[in-house]
Design a binder for these strands. Structure first.
Lengths: 335, 335
DNA sequence: TTGTATGCGTTATCAT
DNA sequence: ATGATAACGCATACAA
């Protein structure tokens, strides 16, 4: 579909206003121009409904006002939330977002990075899984949840503190024997620190704990097996479980219900992420909430910072605990 | 952050290969070129790691290879799914996507449309709520779920058939007295046809039905009141309920459970959309599934179609029914 | 202060 | 078939 050939350009405005091209440019960019000229130009702009062609602009300035976001998908709630907030942060600054869904495909990740650079984006924000991505130095990059070397800033929530908080919460809520359940990438990334934080929290509270960590490829049923092995006379020996994500917690809750365990009476569950049903309803479970909006702002900030005095290699943002029905706070004390 | 000044251009390639600029352009665009030249150029391209600047390309061709997507947000599951699939469909065709989250703000919708046109996008896909959006004829537009006049194609799922299917399913599943629950925009849009389809289905099956439709602004508690008014001796008089969305179904299920009703034993529930927990787990409820992937493809197809012989004003894509635990199919017959 | 001219990277129209 | 050159819309250094 060929565009109508009547999109006005600066030249048209100049002709309409009876001034030179450069003058129009100056008016558009807010540079000093004689008042009488300014008014003539502004009138002409309004009359022709002129709008600058930001691509031609970019060609000159070698800036596209576009940043690329690489993310596995937009359907899993945590990713969806990131996309939403990063989009808002960018639009607020008049930046466009080039969305690239990678589907965890490491070669697709590399392909999109190349494509993004070919499209001359001003920067890239990436939540990626390819351990050896090649990123041209010329394009600013900010990573989410996985450090990619000292020269590339990484933004994450404070996963260690989150794990610790989960342990402390369970202790506060009266648990005596807890478990940590984890699945996911074995790649070293920030979320992996949830485990260490949890252990740390358990130790500091002298809370007895056990861990079940599924490696890549191990079937999910291993969790069910693990839990069944800890049921004696119909009673689960754990009274608290910390799941590495809300998604896992959701599945574990279903298993526990199948096994006849009552939540939170028999066993309390805490997840991680802060996922809400349908994106805006109540929490899926009691959870450690990631500050997604702040993470988004931080990514954009770091990426667009013109003169970064010292680019921080890792920024961890504070997490909070939220009640979501799978823990037994007393009615008055829902924090 | 100023970009490194060493991004190679066609001129560099030409110099490296010892040929003229035009020859490089031809090689890049697959136009006929002598074999010996072609090889020299290709080698130079590889050596310099040259990539075409698509913005300069766009400046010439008056094409940006970018389309804008206007959508309320990316966190509600149905929207998230649309964003994901439209993104895939576009990337498949080497098109970029400019994502604009409107948050149901009608003036933001208009603002983004203007901005999109200023950014010279090649087209716009919009799921919008502003009843009088101004869209320049020069930018191709495809609407989702709401017709915006005969000149603008609208893509939706077959909402009428979906409502009908829900009624028929409930009848098949043994229901004798059903209800339709709806909330949402009172704007005339495609999803509103679910009601008419449901009524039609009930009539054709001689199924007794009642409706409860909340207008904009009416508190959600009205549904609870409505349901309580239909409980006699602890028993709900409805044995089947069709909710206009899975999101509503989710809330209704919680209310019914609070009211002591067993699902699906006492009352069966069917929702609409096909939302899955966490985007990829099991269905939230038994539901009429929208063909999101097909809708996305259709939008992109219609938008990018160079010579549309006749642009269809409304395209309705077939929906399907999926079991999601809130209906009582016999174990063997889960379709 | 305002106007003119050049170049950004690419494509297309010419001569050669 | 290949090479030189103009043009796309804009910004800017420079001349008036």
């Amino acid at each position: 579909m060929k565009k109508n050939n009547s999109v006005p350009t600066m030249k048209d405005v100049a002709a309409e206003a009876g001034v030179a091209l450069g003058t129009v440019s100056k008016v558009v960019n807010g540079l000093p121009v004689g008042d009488s000229y300014r008014i003539r130009v502004e009138d002409a702009i309004k009359k022709l409904n002129y709008q600058v062609n930001s691509y031609a602009q970019g060609l000159k300035a070698d800036k596209t006002h576009t940043i690329a976001l690489l993310i596995p998908n937009t359907v899993q709630p945590f990713y969806a939330s990131l996309v939403y907030h990063i989009n808002l942060s960018l639009l607020k600054r008049k930046y466009r977002m080039l969305l690239c869904s990678t589907d965890y495909d490491t070669s697709l990740e590399q392909e999109y990075i190349t494509m993004a650079q070919q499209n001359k984006v001003d920067g890239i924000i990436g939540l990626t899984y390819n351990p050896n991505l090649i990123i041209e130095e010329s394009t600013p990059f900010v990573a989410i949840d996985r450090s990619m070397g000292p020269k590339i800033p990484c933004v994450a929530s404070d996963n260690f503190a989150g794990g610790q908080l989960a342990a402390e919460k369970l202790a506060d809520l009266g648990c005596k024997n807890v478990a940590f359940l984890r699945t996911g990438s074995s790649l070293t990334n920030e979320p992996n620190k949830r485990k260490a934080g949890f252990e740390n929290g358990c130790l500091s509270r002298s809370l007895k704990y056990e861990m079940k960590i599924l490696n890549d490829g191990e079937p999910f049923e291993e969790f069910e097996k693990f839990l069944m092995e800890h049921i004696y006379n119909g009673k689960l020996s754990f009274d608290g479980i910390f799941c590495v994500t809300d998604s896992l917690a959701f599945s574990i809750i279903q298993i526990l219900q199948k096994l006849g365990q009552k939540i939170p009476e028999d066993v309390q569950i805490i997840g991680f992420d802060g996922v809400r049903h349908f994106g805006n309803k109540n929490y899926v479970c009691s959870t450690i909430v990631q500050p997604v909006s702040e993470m988004a702002e931080m990514c954009v900030e770091l990426l667009l910072q013109e003169n970064m005095p010292t680019r921080p290699p890792l920024v961890c943002l504070p997490v909070t605990y939220a009640y979501g029905g799978t823990t037994s706070e007393t009615a008055g004390a829902l924090t």
